[in-house]
Write a protein that binds this DNA or RNA. Structure first.
Lengths: 222, 222
DNA sequence: GCCTGTGAACCTTTTCACAGCA
DNA sequence: TGCTGTGAAAAGGTTCACAGGC
């Protein structure tokens, strides 16, 4: 799995558990919408596609918020997870690279819905600078540092070609960004204390390709 | 020490190692482009952002292809990994959901470059059916099964809203697709023998948000 | 001397199994 | 009775350290 950063003094939540919290969060939102007030680890597990013991263990890292014989109170648990994930306030996001992907991301509603505010778009191509996308003017790459600082950006999304990824990451870090989501098909190096998550389409397809190729030899699930 | 009593190619490669093969693959392509002929585990490790022992162990699952005191022959290793990943032939891909994201994916060059051929685009919206995207006519969701069968689709990419994801997955599986890449923010259930990889933007951002929230004082040594 | 290949140690994550409590 | 919370066991993954061939 992918390590994504430094954790604090208090309760130490394993990285694998952290990566599942957003899934539980989504399941709980869905349950809330259905008007149900209590949920069992079994139900949550089914919705999240994991084992019930795993759900209980993961949630136990946050505290003992369930009731034996009953389950978890949906609203309360949702609140706990929201706080843990830092979703109680908005995060200003910058997207670097306004090609097909950057464009799609800028318009992605799932972003804004969950408190991630795209406050800056930046591109290296002078032809794109000044262009308006989703009510936001595209800024110049040269101004990235200044834009990050003046708009208080905390999360940088890299949607550039692989060749530009490291430079952009360096600039983001220099400007104080400590959280980076990298869509470029390149490994980027960052100093300690900066979290990077990678999303790589080609890699994912190649992993599928591996299992598809080996399926005749032995059936398996990725 | 695991020795399966079966024939030559029945080596079992751990999932974690499989997930890194595409990274080594990309590094090796880059090295090839530079005209270098031999590479050490150390160099590959740096490029892949992992430990050198990890590289050697991962590669040892494929066989003993290195030379002690020297390193790995780049062209040879690249060929071995390509075969292992099933990249020696093309894979016909269908994209379901031609919204912002589906559109961006259909135009993504990194796909075609690596042998993933987008041979079908499908959408539920009648207004989109018939539309041409990247030289391909958008098909109707109702025809998904037929399209998958007639075009020999082996990989399905789900780029629909969450609410449609499970139904689309069911249809893909019914039509014989065994590899699914899911971009919809939903957990999908599939039968044994079908691989699913998930790419979820909101989840990734929420994980970053967690570490950002739990980070201590924002101080960097420059 | 150099760098691979790999058992063994170590660490993380998952699953089991059951005590504990509403 | 039913379902959580959690030690303990099992499985999986990573790193160490050094033997072994070039």
């Amino acid at each position: 799995m992918q390590r994504a950063g430094t954790s604090s003094n208090a309760r130490k939540i394993p990285g694998a558990a952290v990566a599942r919290l957003p899934i539980y969060y989504r399941a709980l939102v869905e349950i809330t919408d259905d008007g149900v007030e209590t949920v069992s680890s079994e139900r949550l597990a089914t919705m999240a596609g994991v084992n019930a013991a795993q759900v209980r263990k993961d949630l136990s890292y946050l505290g003992s918020y369930g009731t034996r014989g009953v389950g978890y109170e949906v609203a309360f648990l949702l609140d706990r997870i929201s706080r843990e994930l830092g979703l109680t306030h908005d995060w200003p996001v910058a997207i670097v690279g306004v090609g097909n992907l950057g464009h799609a991301l800028a318009n992605y509603a799932g972003l804004t819905d969950r408190g991630f505010r795209v406050l800056a778009l930046v591109d290296a191509d002078p032809a794109k600078v000044g262009m308006r996308v989703n009510d936001l003017a595209v800024g110049a790459l040269a101004d990235l540092g200044e834009i990050v600082r003046t708009r208080g950006i905390t999360i940088g999304i890299i949607a550039t070609p692989a060749s530009a990824a490291q430079d952009v990451a360096d600039e983001l870090v220099a400007a104080g960004v400590q959280s980076i989501l990298n869509f470029a098909p390149a490994v980027i190096a960052v100093p300690d204390g900066v979290s990077v998550r990678k999303v790589d389409l080609a890699t994912e397809l190649q992993i599928l390709s591996f299992y598809q190729s080996h399926r005749r030899i032995k059936e398996r699930i990725a």
